[in-house]
Design a protein around this nucleic acid. Structure first.
Lengths: 183, 183
DNA sequence: GTCTATACCAGGATAGAC
DNA sequence: GTCTATCCTGGTATAGAC
């Protein structure tokens, strides 16, 4: 077999981390879920931190791709909507991982220090692009608020009303554009 | 003296919790900062959890007051702006504590279980009032997004552009109203 | 590749003296 | 109100057998 034990470990870790948080999840719980022992985890990942990184790294690269592409475009209303749409798709696709990053931010900062700085840098580039060149402070704040809008499904988890995914997507994009003053 | 050691403990705890997170802050660090020993903390607070509660409880009561008052009003544009303004004032006044709740949510859930449910309940009431009676799912999502907008200063901390408090306040309120489609 | 066993350390909490 | 000393739990990590 060896149906990629590493992948099964990652899956279990993501599930438990996002359910109970990083600090609150012990390596023993992860091992139990996979059906191996704690010590065996150390064969696949040298530390709890490395395991977390293996989950987060691909997301960082995805985000970088979205921003790199955005910066090649003018921030016209159509382009803004398209870029925010791509960002929202990433968030919805990687919902549990993104939720972990948001709800367990302090643990992430502590454990991912360098990677976290990278993420902040990527976010700043996105803010700047959304706000446009030479934007006022007020406009920058609105750009931040627009991105927060897309993150609503990550925090509200249990509080979201029953709504189908397409309608959710459209609603959030419309709301984000409204924050930016583009309709 | 005894210039209220309990108060000094609370101040130190708030500072350290919001800087490094709840789990990452040890009772020893708090004690050191106050200039007493770990054991002495236990004279003032029976547990780490109780210490956290003593910080959070007043905020919960403040929030309840805002919502109780909102529910006595019709959600007209003027009233919505006034209520959101009061909510924003609370957030800005208790910025480090609110930031802790947002950034360290998983730890808060684990430690404050009952109190956390209360907070969620209060939030739901606010969503419901903002969205108005019999609101569509889409409108509820917008109400959530409007509240998230007010929380921007809590996450962006280091990324906020230099901006004076009044302008920040106006910008966020305008943005929140835009999300709700009220101008 | 996985297991058993174990060393190690940190943090929360308590007992009892002053 | 504060201290010293100590207990206990639980998580990290390693060694070495299978």
């Amino acid at each position: 077999m060896t149906v990629d034990t590493s992948a099964r470990i990652r899956a279990a870790a993501l599930e438990l981390f996002s359910a109970h948080g990083y600090e609150q999840t012990s390596l023993r719980e992860i091992a139990d879920q996979v059906g191996i022992t704690k010590a065996s985890l150390y064969y696949h990942y040298p530390s709890k931190q490395a395991l977390l990184s293996s989950l987060v790294d691909p997301l960082v690269e995805d985000s970088r791709a979205v921003i790199d592409e955005a910066e090649r475009l003018e921030p016209t209303p159509e382009n803004v909507r398209a870029v925010l749409g791509r960002q929202l798709d990433t968030i919805l696709r990687e919902q549990s991982l993104c939720g972990l990053l948001v709800r367990d931010a302090v643990a992430m900062i502590a454990v991912l220090a360098p990677r976290w700085e990278e993420l902040l840098g990527l976010q700043s580039r996105m803010y700047a692009w959304l706000a446009g060149p030479g934007a006022s402070p007020s406009r920058c704040v609105r750009a931040m608020a627009a991105l927060e809008t897309l993150a609503v499904p990550l925090k509200a988890a249990g509080q979201l009303p029953p709504i189908d995914e397409d309608e959710l997507r459209t609603t959030l994009l419309d709301a984000a554009l409204a924050v930016l003053g583009l309709h």
